[in-house]
Simulated assay, not measured.
Amino acid sequence: MATIERLYDESETTKVRFIGFSTDDFRYDFGIIYTNQFFGKPMVVCMQSGCSTLLDGEDIQDYEQLKKIFRLKNDKQAMDLAVFFEQNLPTSRFETQYD
Rank of each mutant, 00 (worst) to 15 (best):
M1D: 07
A2L: 11
E5G: 10
E5M: 13
L7P: 01
L7K: 15
L7A: 09
Y8M: 11
Y8C: 11
D9A: 12
E12L: 08
E12Q: 14
E12G: 05
K15E: 15
R17H: 09
R17P: 04
F18V: 15
F18I: 15
F18Y: 13
I19T: 07
G20W: 14
G20K: 15
T23Q: 03
D25T: 06
F26D: 15
Y28G: 07
Y28D: 04
D29T: 14
F30W: 04
G31D: 14
G31Q: 12
I32L: 12
I32H: 03
I32D: 01
I33K: 11
I33T: 07
Y34H: 13
Y34C: 05
T35C: 11
N36W: 07
N36H: 07
N36C: 06
N36M: 08
Q37E: 15
F39V: 13
F39H: 09
G40T: 03
G40K: 00
K41N: 09
M43Y: 10
M43W: 11
V44T: 03
V45I: 14
M47S: 06
Q48W: 10
Q48T: 01
S49W: 03
S49V: 02
G50Y: 03
C51W: 05
T53E: 06
T53Y: 01
L54K: 04
L54C: 08
G57V: 07
G57Q: 06
E58H: 09
I60D: 00
I60N: 01
I60S: 01
I60K: 00
Q61G: 10
Q61I: 11
D62C: 08
D62T: 05
Y63I: 09
E64G: 07
E64F: 06
Q65L: 08
Q65Y: 09
L66W: 00
K67E: 13
K68I: 02
K68Q: 10
K68N: 13
I69K: 04
F70I: 06
L72T: 06
L72H: 00
N74T: 09
N74G: 10
D75I: 10
D75N: 10
K76T: 10
Q77E: 15
Q77R: 12
A78L: 02
A78D: 01
M79D: 04
L81E: 02
L81Q: 00
A82I: 01
A82K: 02
A82V: 01
F84N: 03
F84R: 03
N88T: 04
L89R: 02
T91D: 10
T91M: 09
T91E: 13
T91C: 08
S92L: 11
S92C: 08
S92I: 12
R93N: 13
R93A: 15
F94V: 13
T96V: 13
D99L: 09
D99G: 07
D99Q: 13
